[in-house]
Each structure stands twice: as structure tokens, then as C-alpha cells.
Design a protein around this nucleic acid. Sequence first.
DNA 1: TTGAAAGCGATACCAC
DNA 2: GTGGTATCGCTTTCAA
Lengths: 329, 329
Amino acid sequence: MSQYSIKDIAKLANVSIATVSRIINNKGKYSEKTRRKVLKVIRETGYEIDSSAQSLRTNVTHTIGILVPDIKNSFFADLVQKIEEKLFEKEYSTIICNTDKNEQKEKAYLRMLENKKVDGIIVISGSYRHGFHFESSLKNIPYICIDREPADFEDTIFISSNHQLGAKEATKYLIDHGSKNPAIITSSFISTSIESRITGFREALSENNIPYRSGQNLLTYEDSTSLQSFLNTNKQIDSFFAVDDNIAIKTILDLKKLGYKVPDDYQVIGFDNIPSDQVLSPTLTTIAQNTSKIAETVVDSILKLLVSPKDKGSQIFIATRLIPRESTR
Amino acid sequence: MSQYSIKDIAKLANVSIATVSRIINNKGKYSEKTRRKVLKVIRETGYEIDSSAQSLRTNVTHTIGILVPDIKNSFFADLVQKIEEKLFEKEYSTIICNTDKNEQKEKAYLRMLENKKVDGIIVISGSYRHGFHFESSLKNIPYICIDREPADFEDTIFISSNHQLGAKEATKYLIDHGSKNPAIITSSFISTSIESRITGFREALSENNIPYRSGQNLLTYEDSTSLQSFLNTNKQIDSFFAVDDNIAIKTILDLKKLGYKVPDDYQVIGFDNIPSDQVLSPTLTTIAQNTSKIAETVVDSILKLLVSPKDKGSQIFIATRLIPRESTR
DNA sequence: TTGAAAGCGATACCAC
DNA sequence: GTGGTATCGCTTTCAA
């Protein structure tokens, strides 16, 4: 911390602290001459504003909290890093809270963020099936939801990749590349964004007049044994859309283990574009989320919300992009 | 933010604010009866302490800053997540600063952390060859260095994996598994921890009476062409210790591309244990850093440093662990 | 254009 | 045990 206070600067510059404050904050009401004099002293002393005092007075902290389910997940890490970077450019600092998909921790973090008086909160992703309603505790503080459907859309700005369209594109890609009967593989945990991906998948089937039956076109991933038995009882299946890359990778690894060739016997496409995709052999065709665009939109939105807290209620869907690689024909 | 201040609580409980403060902070000097009365009011109002005011008064923020070069790197992400988790358990919040290996950003973050009056700073990793001396600006605020050699060891606590020993173990493993002449592959960027790994590699060679010559036993990784020509001119090389997993993976991918078999033609071992290791075929034998232990040590150390800032100067090396997989025999 | 002073919400010293 | 009050460093209103 800097040893100088505004009082010291005032004294050294022979002005009042009020004047120093105005100059620091560009509030006008001072002559160019005093401004220069004061800035000189500030430069020479290395004076830095004390943010505790400033926050106490103004109730703004220039700090944003980010709730993220798991920072190790490469999609989240990428997103958080980009958001943090953009916030920093706007002179905001970021408190990153890893909730570990744990409701207790999430609540504890929210309390902490509240009494640190963060200016806004960014909530990433649906840790919970039907977004648990932490929002009640957030009535006064602006927040943005990424991928997590809020309890009340009117209270927030909802930003998300267009999962549904992305999934539809992925599925159509399989079909366009020769698949007559794609299946979708999910994890047992279904978030709202995964739900949208499933919807997109079904839409693509429907538009191509391929019937969808839960047992036959949808597999909840467990292990290679369950995959094998699924394959045996559903011989018509010839490709997989996995709801995320981790599942896609497990699927490919299992298919290889079972003696199948990808993409010859089965095509596979994933979602998220994680680093491992390119390490896998065959490399994984996938749907990439535009994290830069999401981050940009999120930061713009939250900053706007800070200025005019009434501008809530909008929903923004960001386009995805298909990256063709070797796991599809 | 909570709408109640300590003044409100005092009024509602019919005591002075001094008493409320003492009770909140468990400072003693109050009767059990008043304590209960006050706590009841606090519970009913949902009163939360205002941390700006508290920090202004006490100069402690219960906040720690973490400088990390790249949060997307899975080793860093893992480490940061674990540190953050442990700090949170101790009621500290964490400001994570992604420096992007950029000296300007690092300096800017340091200024920010300083005037946010964080209680301590954790600096992860050597972004710079001979750790640039930001420490000068940190004279007053305790900090811990992970993997980055500080300008002055007396000013900090230095914590790191035992890179040297880990690298030595890796190299010995290659030798024990039939390699007569291992080479080390590095990136062009040499951090202090990578330097230690190189030292460990050379130590293992030396102990096994294998001569080390820079051109022959050390390759700076570029691409498959450079690998091929290295192989051609150094026929005696039969295994690789890569200074990190990303390089190990690139090497294996390139070896396969060049028609070689791993581990039959060349054994490969990496360092870090990143997620992609297990996606690769063959899966990658590697040295894992004990991130849990590092995180624990870091948090313990910084908290101790906050209490007694004089306890600096120590260096702690955390053991690594070899994980055998398919890329070695 | 400038300055005096009130006040943000907490802590801690001192008096009782 | 309890309470009054100065104080932390800043912003902002009001008067000059």
C-alpha cells in the first residue's frame, strides 16, 4: 500500500483535499494550473488511491465476482480467462469463485461477494438441472448468467452459445456425411445447455425424417460394456453426436477398444473444442463455442447493467462453429 | 450488500456499537447475556459486516492475490483451483490475475493488488528467465513464489516441485527400461523450473556414465522436420525425456507421423501429467507434480507469513511422482 | 475555482 | 462489562 494519503498530497500541493479528489476523479472545477501541480505531487510521491476508503464512501468497488463450476474444465478456463482479461482492461478486478458444483459453496461465495460489495456477478453455467434459485439473495446486485438458465429471466441478462443450433449443425453434418442413423450420447447429468443440445439433435433428425426413440437414439454414457451392448441392440446406429468432447473422446477410445474403426465404422462428433481433441487419434470433429465473443458480450452486458440496472431481461445467443477433423468422414 | 450497519444493530439491541463490534470479533468484554441479545438481532436482520469499512480501519482485507501466467494451462489451473479452495476454507478470498506472461500486465496487476490492499500475494511460475524483479515494489507485502525463483530468496518463501529430482527419476526410468542413450527435448523458452529439469536429466546421465553433449542429447523442439534430422544425425538416441507433456505429446505425434513406433522404437516420458496424456495413444508416461501438496504448503506458508512477516527465506521442495503408462517399455 | 466539513461503517482507546 | 468518540481515507455538498 502507498504510504501517502490524499491529505498528504493536499498538504504537499498546497491545496485542499477536496481539490485533490476532484482532480483524481476528473470531476472538473479546477484550474489547469492546480491540476498540473497536484498531478506532479502525485507522481512524485507515487500516491495511490485507497480503494477501501473509496468503496466505503461510494459503494462501488470496481470488482466483479465470477462464479464458475470448475476452473479446470478447459472451456470454463478459457472463458474465465478472457472475461478476466477484458474486465481488467476496463479497470475492473475479478474475484474468481470455484464453486465445485457445490450448492453450499456457491451460497458461501455469494455471501462473501455480497459483503465484499462487488459491483456485479457473472454466473457461469448450469451446475444444477433447473438452476437453483440463488438469485433471491441477489435482488440488489446486478448479475449475468452464462449458460445457466436463471430462475427469472427478467432479473438478469442471459448469455449462452446457441447450443441448440450447434447441435443441430453437428447432427446434420453427420447425416450429410453419410450417416443414416445417428445416436446422441449424453452424460447422466443433464444441464440446461446439454438439454438444448439434445433438442438440436432431435430437430436435425426430425428435419431429415429420421425417427427418434429414446432407447435407440439416445445413450447415457457409462463404459465400454454399455456401449457394446447398445451397439448390439441398435445395429442401425452408424454415428454419434456426443454432448461434449470428453464423452466423445471416451466413446472413441471405447470404440477402438471394441475393435471398431472411427470414422469408417462409426463417425463421432463432439462439442466444446477442448485441447485433447487434437491429441486423439483420430482427431475429433467438434463444435467450438466462440469464447471470445461470449466473453466480450458478457463484459459489455455487465458494464451496461452497472450503469443502468434496469436493462435486464435480454437473452443473447452466440453462434458456434463446426471444426471438421478426422473423426467424421 | 446488507442494508444494516453496526449502528442499526446497536440500536436494535440496545447496546453501543462498541459492544457490537466486540461481540462480532470475539474480543471478550461482554456478558453472555448481551452476546446472545446482539447475535439474535444480527441473525434476524441478516446483518453482514462491511468489508470496505473494516479494511479501511484495520488495513487487512482477507484477500490474497494470485499471479498466474496462464490459467488455461492445466497444471496452473489445477494449482490455482486448489489454492483458491484452501484459502476459501480459511475465509480468504482470492483475486486471480492472469498475467499472460506479460511483464506490463504483471506490473499493472501488482499495482492493482497493492491498492486493493491484499494481505499477501502468491506468484506462480517463472514467466521470465531470471525472474524479473517486481519484488522491489512488494517490499511491504508478503509474497510467496511458486516455481519462480525470486530476485532475493530472503524476501519470500520459495515453493516448488522437486523438478530436478523428478527429471532425474524420469531419466533413470528410461535407462532402467532399456534406454542406452536418452535425449532431452525442451521448448525454446527455458524457465527456472525447466532448467532444473535439465539439470536432473544430466545428473541421471552422469550417474549412469552416459556422456552428455548439447547437440546430441538435447534437442530444442521445433517441428517434425527438425525432429527427423535430429534422429538422422543422432542414431544412438533411443528415448526422450520431454521437459513437459505438451512437448512430449508433440514428439510422440511427430514420431508416429515419421513412421516410428512408441515405445518400441523410441520411449518417451513427459512432465506435468496433463489430461491429454491419457487420450494420447500410446498413453504418456509422465512425472506428476503433487499439486495438492503444493497448494497446501503455499496456503500454510502465506498464512504464517501474514502473522509473522519475518519468517521468510525458506525454500520448500515438494516430491514428484512417476506415473508409468504406455509410452515407455 | 477552491475549501471546510459531514459522513460512509467499522475498530479500539479510554473512561466509567 | 459497557459506552463515547476519534479515526481510517475518501467523496460530496455547501459556502465562499
